[in-house]
């Protein structure tokens, strides 16, 4: 699969990565190279193979419905906001979003 600049532009947009127009052709070449190499997988007939997402052979473990006060719980607004690059009072802030 050979990627063109327009596809890289679209993917970069989805990934929220700013890519300068001038960079698109180089990136397209590079990504095309990687994808071309990846396509060796098409040699393998996998039509009857069930996909495997992970290797843990166990059922999902569930948690009790309790409000916790360890680091999995809330009630720690100061810590939650401590690293915020934009903050007003106890809110995070971002440039205004118009819906």
């Amino acid at each position: 699969m050979s990627l063109d600049a327009a596809t890289v532009r679209r993917i970069a947009k989805l990934a929220r990565l700013h890519v300068a127009e001038a960079e698109l052709p180089r990136l397209a070449d590079e990504l095309s190279g990687i994808l071309g190499w990846i396509e060796q997988l098409n040699e393998v007939d996998t039509s009857n193979v069930p996909p495997l997402a992970g290797t843990m052979q166990m059922a999902l473990r569930l948690r009790d419905d309790v409000i916790t006060d360890d680091i999995t719980g809330g009630g720690r607004a100061d810590e939650i906001l401590a690293n915020a690059p934009g903050r007003a009072g106890n809110f995070f802030t971002v440039p205004k979003v118009v819906e």
């Binding site: 699969m1 996998t46 193979v49 996909p51 495997l52 997402a53």
Partner: peptide, 14 residues
């Protein structure tokens, strides 16, 4: 073509 294919290969490798 890619992700699902890779998961199937993962099954085969495992």
């Amino acid at each position: 073509a890619y992700y699902l294919k890779a998961q199937k290969l993962r099954a085969l490798i495992a």
